[in-house]
Design a protein around this nucleic acid. Sequence first.
RNA 1: GGGCCCGUAGCCUAGCCAGGACAAGGCGCCGGCCUUCGGAGCCGGAGAUCCCGGGUUCAAAUCCCGGCGGGCCCGCCA
Length: 661
Amino acid sequence: MERVERDPYGSAVKLLAREASKLLEEKGVCIEERPEYLVSPPPKPEYGDLSFPAFRLAKPLGLKPLEAAETLAERVRAAAAGSIIGRVESVGGFVNVFLDAAGLARRVFAAARTLSGEFGRVPVDEPLRIVIEHTSANPVHPLHIGHARNAALGDALARLLEARGHVVQRRFYIDDMGRQVAVLAYGMMKLSESGGPAEPRGKPDHWIGLVYAITHTLVDIKSTRRRLEEAREAGDEDRVRVLQEELDDLVGAAGELRERDPELFDALADAVMADEDPEESIARIARAYEFREEWAVKLVRSAVERCIEGFRETLEGRMGIMFDKWDWESDLVWSSMVGRLLEEARRSPYFTLHKEAEALDFKHLQRDPEVRSRLGLPETLEIPPLILVRSDGTTLYTTRDIAYSLYKFRDFNADRVINVIAAEQRLPQLQIRLALLALGYRREAFNMIHYAYEMVNLPGVKMSGRRGRYVALDNLIEAAIQKAGEEIAKRNRGLGEERTREIARQVGVGAVKYALLGVNAAKPMVFNLDDTLNFERNTAPYIQYAHARASKILAKAGGNIPWDVVDYNAADKHPARRRLLVEASRFPYIAAKAADELRPELVAEYLNGLAEIFNTWYPQDPVLAERDEGARAYKLGLVYLVKTVLHNALNLLGIPAPEEM
RNA sequence: GGGCCCGUAGCCUAGCCAGGACAAGGCGCCGGCCUUCGGAGCCGGAGAUCCCGGGUUCAAAUCCCGGCGGGCCCGCCA
């Protein structure tokens, strides 16, 4: 049991790659740093299960392409004894490998059987301690679909890395020191002063979002009116026109907001309009909070806590995306961590004064060739000096983020920190790494990864948190669950109301996650709810359905598989059966690759392919009707393998796999 | 002005970093399959200047150079 091979397929890949490397090494040449990348499944089944383009080796070995392929094939044949590599052919410069299906099945079945929920985990030799910070949405409005992409990615990365044996910590950064939070707090203050409804109605973050949007819009209306007034007095026609347009737009937004809660809106409107200078009131709250004055702490924290409560309901409660730590930006400042960082900055050779403000200048640092190559800096990129402290003595977001970056390394004794943050934050993320270098934190700078993802748009929706124009993630998920429930009800097999609801939740949430994870993070995407809810191919429900079918076949067989009588020679007797075995065996290899390359979409793509192959196979090669005892046992073993892989792979993406649906 | 990302059938996506065997799937469209373990299914068909132009190579969707189109970023905002 302890000697079970976790990844037989991967071993075959490695054997092929190793023989190619050795061949080159013996000749004293070195071209490909990792020949493993050259091993791939060939385009046609008659070419075998694995192929290696041996043309590459021809020139360095001083051979003709066909000779090189034959030489390598010969070596692989010799090395293949006792492995799952069967026939090895040399065709047109390729080395094609046919796996021994019976041997492969024997090993993979044993692995799936003994490892079960752990099957697919291939631990690295030297596990790392890795922090993943993700989602970290501004706590002033509900989460939307963009945050969902962030959360789904962060969670999937964490799961993938854990499956690789790394020790992972998930953190959420609560950015409570920005102006946006001060605006929200101001709104809350005015609300309680005016005796308006000061307690959340409905989900707390939705309510907070409304208070924030109303307050922000009212404050903007007030200041726009004032500027309009000034422009009129100055007789600046063009400016008057522009401001008038802006004001009309704001008033329109205010109208929309009022419709959502007239009582709340009117209470806030009266209070804000009565304020001489809202901007100053907001700035006062921000300052008082930074200096930890009790009234401000109470005010801000209670508002932000409500919003966070809503976030947790959505992320942890609904989506199953859990966090280990919730870090408050304000704690960093109050704890003097930011202060100490500034001390260090002032002693740095890169410290400079930019006008009145304290700053770091990276001009010299970015010429360092190692810095350039490791951070991937383009030659001509001009990185602006990074202001650390305003001339009024207050800190900036990025300053605090530098302190936070160090904190993440220290608090968890981390080897690596991955920040899942929108692609538009590239420059500030780069500046943080440069700042760490400037302060002498090389290890941290080179081990902090910005995992950038592009925007998610909803068709026909222009989002604006400040104006309250957004589609909340809760509503999208709700729609997905609703639709899933209808589909389940259509099939109507007396699952019972509660069970139906639970499965609908798993299917709906899974569909949303899969849609977000299936596309490479570097691509901007349009989230089309109709497509997501289509539940056809290339969706989570399609894959979950295959899993449910597999589960059902096993259940009908009585729940246990007669492993003792499995006839492994049955593996090769049917083309679709054989193909399914090979594809299912690829899982540990794929999971390891997806983890090492931080690419959850590889798992998503793999899952879809496996489900498809399973769906092709089972109607043409029935399991339960099989008369031969050994073959039937083999097929049950295969179904078990597929079910295990589907389950575990979905789990890597944070998607549940119901037994029935 | 500079930098980064993206550009593959009507639409969406994989392949690009690590160049190789007829560019792989999905949606939509057309045609089949409910007498077989649940049809959220299966089988078949039509549909592609891989944005354009050069270059490197035995071989380019993939690498290099130059363009074009779209997105994002260049605040004492966050």
